[in-house]
Amino acid sequence: MRRWIADRWVMGVALLVLGYLSLPIVVVAGLSFNRPSSRLSYDFNEFTLDNWTQPCATSDMCDAVVRSMEIGLIATVVSTLLGTLMAFALVRHGFRGRAGINGLIFLPMATPELVMGTSLLALFVAAGVPQGFWTIVIAHVMFCVSFVVVTVKARLSGMDRRLEEAAMDLYASEWQTFRRITLPLVLPGIMAAALLAFSLSFDDFIITNFNAGTTVTFPMYVWGAAQRGIPPQVNVIGTAMFAIALLLVGASTLRGRRARRAALVAPVAAVGTPKSAS
């Protein structure tokens, strides 16, 4: 009996913690079917499907969601491109100033968002740049690049150099080697990085808040609504995001083996590991 407990208490604690981590999602999903008693109420009142049938009843919110998606897509494309190029340089080439570049990539991940947000604000104000859609994009690319570098780097440095040598040995030129061997093998890492960049961008509030001007993204809309009263459709968006994430992440992870699971964890795991970053 003692042995049985000793073997299982860790799992028991883990499940409790998972419950703690999942509770808000359950509540969000529940509230998406709620007709609140008043605008400022956060309590469950009455079941309804209205929020799901009319997700854009509050048109401001849907505008904000669309804007967040636009920003997210642009920031993802740009940061994935820049970050992937840097990752290739770091893993595949020797150059002077490696420590400096590593520092430049590591520091944004170790700096509080608040400091990055306020400093960009100070720069834009000093330079007289009007804040809005594009300043948000600039900020998002800035904080996404490092995460992309780390993610792609992890995949790239795990790749066997011999595969490329073998391709060259089999009459593939540098470009053909890249196109036929390197790119297909690194692609899962690049996709994971892009997914990470998009979710970071879509969900960012602090940095955006300092650099948005009058532009409203989804997190900013939620923040503003928290003071005025939250429309229940916010929970519909929240639940839908969770469902999409489950489909994307869940499908690929449950089907895949170790490699895919590693791709899922690698970005977050690699980010903070001081050794891998510096």
Binding site: D160, R162, A166, D169, S173
Partner: peptide
């Protein structure tokens, strides 16, 4: 000459087969 210009081929240690 670059490796791909040589009439020489290699069987690599641990084979280096393209996994994809």
């Amino acid at each position: 000459l670059r490796p791909y210009k040589r009439p020489v081929n290699t069987v690599f240690q641990s084979y280096a087969l393209f996994p994809h």
